[in-house]
Simulated assay, not measured.
Amino acid sequence: MNIKSLLLGSAAALAAVSGAHAADAIVAAEPEPLEYVRICDAYGAGYFFIPGTETCLKIGGKVRTEGQWYDAYNPNSRLGTLWHTRAELRLATASDTEYGPLKTNTEIRWDWNDGNSTKTNLLHASISLGGFTVGKEDSEFNVFTGYAGDVINDDVVYDGPYELNQITYNYDAGNGFTAVISLEDTNSGTGATGSNGEDSSDHYAPDVVAGVGFKSGAWGFKVVGGYDSIVEEGAIKARVDADFGAFSAFLMGGWNTDGDKLNKYAGSNGAGDAAGIGWGDWALWGGASVPINEKLKWNVQLAYTDSKIFAATTNLTWNPVKNLTVRPEVSYTNWDSINQDQWSGILRFERAF
């Protein structure tokens, strides 16, 4: 065998071995593309898509701490300083369907007062689709009219119930006209009673709320009525709002169908010697908000009833930075029917997110 033949044979052998190794080589897999969180702007700011789904999620809440001196709802209150801290977590979901957005709203609250353990409350939990809402929310007797003024102690004079199960339909014509009808859970079950001690242990009929409203430009008007099926009485509230640019104001009036009785929609928030003192035949609320500058606003609310409850509250709302609010507030309440009154104060710090 000559040298040329040897070299050619060696080259062929090396080529065969190299080909075999190439066939057996491990090829690294391409990395899977990462799915980053996608913004979902179809339902407002703050929503994002839950990865792998077409459902949008919004996470929010607040942390609040405040000191309170005396109690605007209780003429017997002799508190020094009650320090109260609260945290709330809100979860909202939304997804598109052939009937419109399918939404949920969940809100959990934790409260702690001086010397007490933490209390947990499922504040709201509801499902909404096509204008219908089912679950636990505040009564439409409050929600539809926008509660009362922009003060902490806005319901010293009772303005309606909160936190109850309901089936509600909201209608918005898109031209300023709105309407609502709601079937709301009554206080029924073993040992349950109505607003005046009525036996409601086997009561089955829901309470009913209905309202209409119209807004045009700077003016808005709403009227809402609630019927308490246990007491078989109810109440009506009407509210006018106006924005004058330099300030905004509201006036709201309520009528109790039987001023000698309390009912779910014309009740009492009084405590101590003021417990059970309701509107009588009627109640009035009025208030104003005056922006002083971009970070500071002054608010005031006055309320008076046929039963001669007078409640006045004023505060300053200061936002030193975005989403941080500081509120010093002073309230005065007079219950003429029991010849007692009360001054109270609150200093609140709240961070929303």
Rank of each mutant, 00 (worst) to 15 (best):
A13T: 06
K58T: 00
A275F: 09
A312K: 02
E137Y: 04
H84C: 01
D172L: 09
Y204W: 05
T314C: 01
L284H: 10
G345Y: 05
Y162M: 10
G131T: 05
N187I: 10
N175P: 10
L57Q: 00
A148F: 02
L183M: 14
D281G: 04
A246G: 15
Y304G: 10
T305P: 05
A42M: 01
I167K: 01
N153W: 14
N113L: 14
W285G: 04
D260E: 15
L8T: 13
G44V: 00
G115H: 07
N334A: 13
D111E: 15
G60I: 00
Y36F: 09
N2D: 15
D228I: 03
S10N: 12
E32V: 13
C40F: 00
V300G: 03
S216L: 03
D202L: 05
K297H: 04
N269D: 11
V143H: 01
D260G: 14
D138Q: 12
F48H: 04
T333W: 11
D172F: 10
A311E: 06
V209E: 06
N319D: 08
W285K: 07
T55S: 07
V209A: 06
E107A: 03
T133M: 05
Q68R: 14
G67E: 10
D243W: 01
L102K: 02
I230N: 07
A238W: 09
S126T: 12
F177W: 12
G60H: 00
A352G: 04
I230T: 12
G217W: 07
S307W: 07
G52D: 08
A266C: 09
D258I: 14
Q301G: 07
P31C: 12
D281M: 04
Y70W: 13
A218R: 02
N269P: 07
A266T: 06
I3M: 14
Y70N: 15
A72Q: 10
S18R: 07
V134A: 15
F141N: 04
L123Y: 10
K62P: 04
L7Q: 14
I338V: 06
W83R: 01
E107R: 05
G234S: 07
G253L: 06
D155P: 02
L284M: 14
Y332W: 15
P101K: 02
D273L: 15
Q301K: 04
D241L: 00
L6P: 02
F244Q: 06
S95G: 09
V231L: 03
F132P: 09
G234Y: 05
E350N: 01
L91P: 01
P320A: 02
A20S: 08
K237I: 03
N121V: 11
L82G: 02
S182R: 13
D199N: 15
I346W: 03
M252Y: 01
S18L: 08
P161C: 03
S95D: 02
P31R: 11
L82M: 07
N263E: 09
E198I: 09
G276Y: 08
A29Q: 11
I3L: 13
V240Q: 08
A303F: 05
Y36L: 11
G270T: 06
S331M: 15
S337E: 13
L262V: 14
W298H: 12
I39G: 00
V290M: 09
F244W: 07
Y169M: 13
T168R: 15
G254F: 11
I127G: 01
Y227E: 09
A28D: 03
I152L: 08
T118I: 15
S188D: 13
E184G: 13
A13D: 03
